[in-house]
Amino acid sequence: MKKVFLSLGTAALLAIGLQEAAAQTPYRTAIGIGIDVGDGPTLVGPQIKHSFGGANAGNAQVLFGDDVITLGVDYSYNKQIPGTNGLGWYVGIGPQLSFVDHSSRWFSHDDETYFAIRPAAGLEYKIPTAPIGFHFDWKPWWNLTHNSNFEPARFTLGFKFTIN
């Protein structure tokens, strides 16, 4: 009898845990367009976000701008806001490489590669009745190369098609 209750209790906890994990992100994968704006060049390009289960997700993007190509990946911790039906918040961080052409007016070095860390804090909304989502976040740029500097006035906006 003890084993039956232990098995039932374990199954109940597992079911509750799976429900909680499924509730953290309203989709499994999303593909779309990201726009990175603020001080410096405006960058635009494709992005993909994938939930690894629970509150954990990864995001990858390739952004193009004024003589700049940027590759980045991020880890994010995601939570849905209770009672909002599709609205959630997230925080994250990830590395970024920027390849700059010598003719860029935004960077001081010629033909350089910049390595940066990008923390992020934002909101994401997935339309409950459609496979469409949006996000907006504050995503400062912390350059660790070429006279390291921190640019706090950077933001991203994304439009995505969600795949469950």
Score class of each variant (00 low, 15 high):
132 I>K: 06
93 I>W: 11
157 L>A: 14
109 H>M: 01
136 F>L: 15
106 W>G: 00
104 S>M: 01
133 G>K: 06
145 T>E: 12
155 F>A: 06
138 W>R: 07
93 I>H: 03
90 Y>A: 07
148 S>A: 14
134 F>L: 12
89 W>A: 10
143 N>F: 00
148 S>I: 05
123 L>M: 12
148 S>C: 03
105 R>I: 03
98 S>H: 08
126 K>N: 13
138 W>S: 02
134 F>G: 04
125 Y>L: 12
144 L>I: 15
124 E>L: 13
137 D>H: 05
154 R>N: 12
136 F>D: 05
109 H>E: 15
116 A>E: 15
146 H>F: 05
117 I>M: 11
122 G>E: 11
87 L>C: 03
125 Y>D: 12
151 E>K: 13
153 A>H: 09
110 D>H: 06
101 D>Q: 09
93 I>V: 14
157 L>I: 14
152 P>L: 05
162 T>K: 11
138 W>K: 08
134 F>D: 10
129 T>I: 11
98 S>G: 09
153 A>R: 08
154 R>T: 11
128 P>H: 02
161 F>P: 04
118 R>L: 08
109 H>F: 06
147 N>L: 01
85 N>M: 02
91 V>W: 01
144 L>E: 10
136 F>A: 15
82 P>Q: 09
99 F>A: 10
87 L>R: 00
149 N>L: 06
117 I>N: 04
153 A>V: 14
96 Q>K: 13
97 L>H: 10
82 P>M: 03
159 F>T: 15
148 S>V: 03
110 D>F: 00
89 W>D: 02
142 W>V: 01
91 V>L: 08
115 F>Q: 13
99 F>K: 10
146 H>S: 09
97 L>D: 08
86 G>Q: 04
95 P>A: 07
122 G>I: 07
143 N>W: 01
158 G>K: 14
143 N>G: 04
94 G>T: 04
118 R>M: 12
113 T>G: 07
126 K>W: 14
117 I>W: 07
107 F>I: 02
130 A>S: 10
88 G>H: 07
121 A>H: 11
91 V>R: 00
148 S>F: 03
124 E>P: 04
123 L>G: 09
145 T>V: 02
151 E>S: 08
149 N>W: 07
107 F>S: 01
83 G>M: 03
114 Y>H: 14
131 P>T: 05
122 G>P: 09
82 P>R: 09
142 W>M: 04
127 I>S: 08
152 P>V: 01
148 S>P: 06
115 F>S: 11
156 T>Y: 03
112 E>G: 03
141 W>Q: 12
140 P>M: 10
129 T>W: 10
131 P>W: 08
100 V>E: 00
92 G>H: 04
103 S>A: 12
86 G>I: 00
158 G>I: 03
134 F>T: 05
96 Q>Y: 08
144 L>G: 07
95 P>D: 13
140 P>A: 06
161 F>V: 14
136 F>Q: 02
119 P>W: 02
88 G>E: 14
158 G>R: 15
131 P>V: 02
104 S>A: 00
94 G>Y: 08
101 D>N: 14
102 H>C: 02
106 W>F: 11
119 P>N: 05
106 W>P: 02
141 W>I: 04
125 Y>T: 13
105 R>G: 10
111 D>N: 15
90 Y>L: 10
